[in-house]
Design a protein around this nucleic acid. Sequence first.
RNA 1: CGGGGCGUGGCGCAGUUUGGCUAGCGCGCCUGCCUUGGGAGCAGGAGGCCGGAGGUUCAAAUCCUCUCGCCCCGACCA
Length: 571
Amino acid sequence: MLMSQLYAPTLRETPAEAELVSHQLMLRAGFMRRSASGMYTFLPLGLRVIRKVEQIIREEMNAIMGQEVLMPIVQPAELWQESGRWGDYGAEMFRLQDRNGRQFCLGPTHEELITALVRSEVRSYRQLPLRLYQIQNKYRDEIRPRFGLMRGREFIMKDMYSFDKDEEGLDASYWAAYHAYERIFKRCGLEVHPVEADSGAIGGDVTHEFMVLAEAGEDFVLFCPDCGYAANVERAEGVDQPGEAPQDDLQPLEEVATPKISTINQLCAFLNREPKDCIKTLIYLADGKPVAALVRGDHNLNEIKLRKLLKCQVLELADAETIGRVTGAPVGFAGPVGLQVPLYADFAVRQTVNAVVGANKQDYHLLNANLGRDFVVTTFADLREAQPGDPCPRCSGILEGARGIEVGQVFKLGTKYSKAMGATFLKEDGVETPLIMGCYGIGVGRTVAAVIEKNHDDDGIVWPISIAPYHVVIVPVSMKDPVQAEAAQKLYNELVAAGIETVLDDRDERPGVKFKDADLIGFPIRVTVGPKSLEKGELEIVIRRTKEVRSLPVDQVLAAIREIVEGGDLG
RNA sequence: CGGGGCGUGGCGCAGUUUGGCUAGCGCGCCUGCCUUGGGAGCAGGAGGCCGGAGGUUCAAAUCCUCUCGCCCCGACCA
């Protein structure tokens, strides 16, 4: 490809719309442009990167017996009504109608479609296992699209769906996908960390997310440096440290005026106590019914855990009116003593002694509230959000925290969709049984964004060879010098003939401009064709990542480049 | 959806508070000269119904009302 022909409009200045480095660089380097909030056009360079990531995914999916299919983006409402998700998905689903008024959506995911496909064709255990995957655009009308490809409304996703006859089969499919993911991200030059995760609305119990640790990440993960335990904060377990609180030295309950003090921090400053000496009382509505959740003052409640414990559909913080009705006080003064709703408490509450709690009375708190004597908890459970510094739930280590970008997730779905949609098969014994499913997603665009987040410097992107849009750029210092132009063209022909993806920067620009663009775009290898080295019969190879310069005789350049490209990553 | 910010040539911005004459600057773009090892220099030039609609006024980028779009924080979320 000739640079003069390549449609890669680079920008000298950072576009105001972009916040993240990866987003800025993709715009600046001419890889993509925005068309609407959360939707992007990929320009030639961007598309080449996307295609390379897709190709790596294809190879690894095929290697675990995945077969590629292509499904419609527009999906009929009936299928989603069957699974029950037409209602559940809510405003996040792009919906549309055809001319006859039939309802459709732009597929946010494809479980329904694939299940419908398979149920009409798979009849027997002899046809299993079956692993189908697709790579295509999916649509979610996100509340807040942001960070370029990181959270778009239209995004490219690979999803594989597995169908097995039993749990062992599902387990095999799950771990095959898990290990394929490790290979895929490694080939893309990413270090990923599989973490235990919450399965959210998609259902199922066992699930891992593949995280790239980066400040730009929207997720928070906790991990144990000793035993390797790693989990999304949504999922990470809090430890139930054994033992009851000491029963001696209980002080008498005492009411204390705390005017206008309604947060733990204000309270601690006012009373000169530590947050861990307080108990937070949060009033929730679980499917409309008020409940109280108790966590220690230095902890945060994990709503996902509470929702699971209560087995409720809708869980939301109660409004001020409900809080007033339940506690008899305005927001900020709720406490467990005397509350007439079920109390669900985190394990850590069990160890508190002489705690500070709300008095259920405006501008008052209680000192020395004690479990058993002053209030009774309905159920103790792991309800708090784990945090760095907590004990590891698997060993004696201490958890650390980091932000992460979720680039992939694997789920054991079980029979949620096959049951709802009647996707069954006959087992060896002739019994009709729902298919056992798994699903395995990779955000292609997000993976590219993550690679840039982890591989850039002040000058631009530093692509790993494996997904670079081109391997090499040839930069003649001056195209007007026929000697340089000829040498550059000759090398270009040789590289292309050798199957090396090469761009020749044939523009009549000053060298500085061409070097800047080359760095910005991030070609892993640059060959400079200049008068100084040509006189000696040499060319210069510059490694983008290290800026290392190697001067080589002209006739050795091809071999050297080939070695670098075939050697894979430059480390 | 709540809070905040921004819409002025392709990009980045000034001008808006305190209405006023041909709407500016930098970059990019076009022509010519010159230059060629890290975003050169000189000269000339093109390009904007100031997001849109309505209103106030002798006069609106600037004031008022409505609207659309984009970005950030939060809540939310495979």
